[in-house]
Design a protein around this nucleic acid. Structure first.
Length: 1004
RNA sequence: CGGCCCGUAGCUCAGCUGGUCAGAGCGGGGUUCUUAUAAAGCCCUGGUCGCGGGUUCGAGUCCCGCCGGGCCGACCA
């Protein structure tokens, strides 16, 4: 039967007669440990217990940003969740009630597209044909399917959030709350209809908001760039040249714009004359002659021949006008204007009274009016248009340009700038209040607030809220067919609907209202931007204001949110905007926003690059603790995370194994010395603490202070850096210096004091680490808590450590720091002189601030000198320690003995002996060396647990058994353990030696 | 074009309010210590802390300019 080695066994079954601890072993299967912990949490309902325990405590309010469940979660999703979880666990340990409700963004284009893919649809019309009701039902189901995948990962990484009662943006209650909010905004006059040019996806057939646009820019897109002749009507032989990268907008041309302050020129080239900006003469091909300089004012009002007369709209058009937005950075300094396909163009046309008419339909194909290209998709029409212009002598020049161009963030279709009637929230009017609201928020990293985020708010656009799609919250605006009166509905009651009525399309479109004028009101066809839904979660998750008004009031604004940097203009923005509009305050107080996860070379991860790092593979190999710790410590929040499985795995050996082995060490020796951590059991031992004990406790108390300060400031990086240093200090300084005390069987009280000290430091350390690496800390906690019914059964149910005032000791910390610097300063001297550290020396001359006697004793031991000679501090104030490297015979002999002893210990280790298993040592050496050994035999024997140390002839050395041999100051020797055959030099178990499993410390 | 971030040893990164700050880890080379450690300590890999100015008694650490990288905006008619 295989022991479940990572778990403490019930006391009594396996324990030392004197010990409350069950044995534990070195670690090797972290994923198995984590699976065990997950099962423990599940079976013990630890998460629920934590909430219950703080039920009446002051709340710490957290909002979970609802992921759109339309695909599998990636490693970057683990990143934000790691930071969320550590703050939430910390706050709960600090005594706050931390309700944390999961949420799912169920609406929106991403979900629709996923379903369209499944159904093999390529056009929006396919959805209508298929039936909107069935389609929406599939959307709802698709979300539910992916939610299951997200829940699996959420649990696996130890992200504690209540998955049992999530909010979903597609429920009727949620939608009703959103309607309520839109009615508020409508009544304040901020929700309006407008005819504007917006980015438009001809495949999805909906416009997009500016904050969706940014996600879809692609670099280095090749597009045609054409320069076209516009022939002046009254001046035969003279053309105005205009430049565009969208030839498909040329049939829609209605005007040419010149800059009022830009100087122009008329040039002769061949038998024609051309007008361009003087600064842009360089774009002309071939020789030319400037005929005249022309002011913009002279050009304004000139009429020209339409390029495509058959498409020309009725009314006034085809004139040159002045416009401020014209520049001479590109093109000819004269701008082709098509009212329906450019923001500036539309404004200009409306000002000048030019007709604004579409030449392209909602599907991105030319309308019948443009006979030559009717039915062609605009991008496909570009080359045909160029050919046509060429054939008619209107094309001056055609090239290819590479530039950045927006594509649909979900379906990769090139976007068109397209004039549409849309519903907008006039956020530009609210800019000052949004900026003021943002100023109240604390960001990690701090520069985001006034940097990227603040900057973005300054250049805010109106929020294009409506989407001409299907799966979303219906825009609750009804229009009277008779008098065009608008009404924004804010509740189901206004429509006379049951609470359990589904509110989606197509049902909602069948609901009519009667207008005050007696006419019939019908709903507008649009749904709303899914980002609005998620921004509504602070109130909509509560079905506010219809229910839970008190709960909402108590939970707004939130203390803390955390999402990736990409949410600056996503959720961070919509939360802020909606909260400011509705409640006149920001929705959150503190934000952590980690940067992107990229591959090991700094490239974005993308499926087509083949460099996507799979979180599951990392979790299976290194575990969730390792991945989490890597995120907390590898770089500061705000820097890119260059991830690779190897880098994450380093955490295991560099950090997790050391931590684990600290507790293995403690338990091993607690079992041998009979240490009992039960309060009261160690009474009276405090007075016997050594300076090392006091130091490690002071160091821990200091770390508690620092970690609390850092986490209170949402600085997980700072907290973890401190904890990493603490683990290193405990392991490589306290335990290393104190090892002999733990195993000193002549002083069991002293050993128990050491154990009690390490127990105290380690339990606090593990508690501090629990928010970050919740799995391993849980196992260690339970192993340490074994047999103590009064101790919390989970580390996550404990209170975060307080800095113990009695333990704090800044002077001791400073003294030890100086001591360690002195030791480091001295060691290179031995190396240079090739004198081993185990070789005792007479003295070291130390120039430093005076150290207390007990620290000086440690210094002498670390330096391995018999005396410390004091010297004045050098002028530069830098403490030094200078070794006297003179060797006497006596010193040499002592060094020999220590070498022999070390060789014996090494043989014990290689033979995998138990710590106290007695052995018989035999050795061969010359007389001088043997005399030194003989003189020190009692000490050596005790040190290496030898019942006898016997000398044999130097030659021949034994052929059997594992022998260690060497030369000390020209004197050859060998040493071996008697009765332990197995001569090979490998560290495998020697035949006859105890089986390596179970581990050391397990049997009496 | 504008905003922000970054540019520190071969690699990945720390360096808070200016004065032991010239560091850590990894890799490589060397060495030492050790029965908790699939460990650890130490040394080396000799870094003009991107470049140039400035402020200061003193600047990776503050200011200005420039170069390079990243992100975000704007523009892309």
């Amino acid at each position: 039967m295989r022991q479940r080695w990572w778990r403490a066994v019930e006391p009594g079954a396996d324990k030392e007669p004197m010990s409350v601890f069950a044995s534990v072993t070195p670690m090797f299967d972290i994923p198995a440990l984590e699976a065990e912990v997950l099962a423990f949490w599940q079976e013990g309902a630890i998460f629920e217990e934590g909430l219950r325990q703080r039920a009446s405590a002051p709340p710490f309010v957290f909002h979970e940003g609802p992921p759109t469940a339309n695909g599998l979660p990636g490693v970057h999703h683990v990143l934000a969740r790691a930071f969320k979880d550590c703050i939430l666990r910390y706050q709960q340990m600090r005594g706050r009630r931390v309700d944390r409700r999961a949420g799912w963004d169920a609406h929106g284009l991403p979900v629709e597209l996923e379903v369209e893919r499944q159904l093999g649809f390529s056009r929006k019309a396919d959805i209508e044909t298929y039936g909107v009701e069935r389609f929406n039902q599939l959307c709802r189901e698709s979300v539910s399917r992916y939610i299951a995948e997200w829940e699996t990962l959420t649990r696996r990484i130890g992200y504690w959030i209540d998955l049992g009662d999530p909010y979903r943006t597609d429920t009727a209650d949620y939608i009703e709350s959103v309607w309520w909010s839109l009615q508020q905004i409508f009544e304040r006059g901020w929700l309006t209809q407008g005819y504007r040019v917006t980015p438009y996806c001809p495949r999805c057939q909906t416009s997009l908001s500016t904050h969706e646009l940014n996600q879809g820019y692609q670099e280095n897109v090749a597009d045609p760039a054409v320069t076209v002749r516009f022939r002046l009507r009254e001046r035969p032989g003279v053309s105005v040249l205009a430049w565009t990268t969208t030839p498909w907008t040329l049939p829609g041309n209605v005007a040419l714009a010149v800059g009022p302050a830009i100087p122009y020129a008329r040039v002769r080239q061949g038998d024609e004359e051309l007008i361009v900006a003087r600064d842009r003469l360089g774009m002309l091909t071939g020789p030319y002659e400037v005929v005249a300089e022309v002011d913009a004012a002279e050009l304004v009002g000139l009429r020209y021949e339409p390029l495509f007369p058959e498409a020309a709209p009725p009314g006034d058009a085809f004139r040159v006008v002045a416009a401020d937005f014209v520049t001479t950075d590109e093109g000819t300094g004269i701008v082709h204007t098509a009212g329906a396909y450019g923001e500036d163009d539309l404004v200009l046309c409306q000002r000048e009274g030019f007709p604004v008419r579409h030449t392209v339909g909602l599907d991105g194909r030319f309308l019948p009016e443009v006979a030559a290209f009717a039915g062609l998709f605009v991008k496909d029409a570009d080359p045909r248009i160029i050919e046509d212009l060429e054939a008619r002598g209107l094309l001056y020049r055609a090239e290819e340009i590479r530039h950045t161009y927006p594509f649909c963030w979900r379906c990769d279709t090139p976007l068109l700038y397209y004039a549409l009637t849309s519903w907008f929230i006039r956020t530009t009017q609210l800019r000052d209040r949004l900026v003021a609201g943002n100023a109240e928020v604390a960001w990690v990293p701090p520069h985001l607030r006034d940097g990227r985020r603040g900057n973005w708010l300054e250049s805010l656009q109106d929020w294009n809220l409506s989407r001409t799609r299907y799966w979303g919250t219906p825009l609750p605006i009804w229009v009277c067919a008779a008098c065009r009166q608008l009404r924004c509905v804010g509740s189901r009651a206004e429509l006379g609907l049951d609470p359990d009525q589904d509110l989606h399309k197509p049902f909602i479109d069948t609901v009519t209202l009667t207008c005050a004028c007696g006419g019939t009101m019908r709903r507008v066809p649009e749904v709303i931007d899914g980002w609005y839904d998620s921004g509504a979660m602070p109130f909509a998750q509560w079905h506010y204001p219809f229910e839970n008004q008190a709960a909402f009031a108590a939970a707004h604004p939130a203390d803390f949110i955390c999402e990736g940097i990409d949410q600056t203009r996503g959720w961070f923005y919509t939360l802020l905007a909606e909260s400011v509009m509705l409640f006149d305050e920001p929705a959150y107080r503190n934000v952590i926003s980690p940067s992107h996860v990229v591959d090991r070379t700094g490239r974005k991860m993308s499926k087509s690059w083949g460099n996507v790092v799979d979180p599951v593979a990392i979790l299976d190999r290194s575990g969730a603790d390792a991945l989490r710790w890597w995120f907390y410590t590898t770089v500061s929040v705000g820097q890119e995370y260059r991830i690779s499985p190897e880098r994450v795995h380093e955490v295991v050996s560099r950090f997790l194994l050391i931590l684990w082995n600290l507790h293995v060490f403690l338990i091993t020796y607690s079992r041998t010395c009979g240490f009992d951590p039960t309060p009261g059991a160690a009474d009276g031992e405090r007075e016997r603490r050594t300076v090392m004990d006091r130091w490690v406790l002071a160091r821990t108390a200091e770390a508690v202070q620092i970690v609390r300060r850092r986490l209170d400031a949402y600085d997980a990086n700072g907290a973890c850096r401190q904890l990493a240093t603490l683990v290193d200090d405990v392991s490589t300084w306290y335990v290393r210096r104190s090892r002999s005390r733990f195993r000193d069987d002549r002083d069991p009280v002293g050993a128990r004091v050491a154990c009690a000290t390490l127990y105290r430091a380690l339990t606090q350390l593990v508690q501090m680490l629990a928010p970050f690496i919740p799995f391993m800390t849980e196992t260690i906690w339970r192993n340490l808590a074994a047999g103590q019914p009064q101790v919390a059964r989970s580390v996550h149910l404990t209170d975060f450590p307080e800095p113990d005032q009695d333990d704090l000791d800044p002077e001791l910390l400073a003294g030890m720091a100086q001591l360690r610097r002195l030791v480091e300063a001295a060691r290179p001297q031995r190396q240079a002189a090739k004198v081993a550290i185990r070789q005792p020396l007479t003295a070291a001359t130390v120039a430093s601030d005076p150290l207390p006697a007990e620290l000086e004793a440690i210094l002498a031991e670390e330096l391995n000198v018999r005396a410390i000679v004091h010297a004045p501090l050098p002028p530069d104030g830098r403490p030094t320690a200078t070794l006297d490297l003179t060797l006497t015979d006596e010193l040499r002999e002592e060094g020999w003995v220590r070498t022999i002893a070390r060789r014996i210990q090494d043989l014990r280790r290689l033979a995998r002996l138990e710590p106290r298993q007695p052995v018989t040592v035999v050795y061969g050496a010359g007389d001088r060396l043997a005399a030194a050994v003989a003189a020190a035999t009692p000490q050596v024997a005790r040190q290496v647990y030898a019942d006898a140390i016997r000398r044999q002839a130097l030659a021949p050395r034994p052929a059997e058994g594992r022998v260690s041999e060497g030369i000390l100051d020209d004197q050859p020797y060998w040493v071996m353990l008697e009765g332990l055959p197995g001569a090979r030099n490998d560290p495998g178990p020697a035949p006859g030696a105890p089986d390596p499993d179970p581990p050391p410390g397990e049997r009496p």
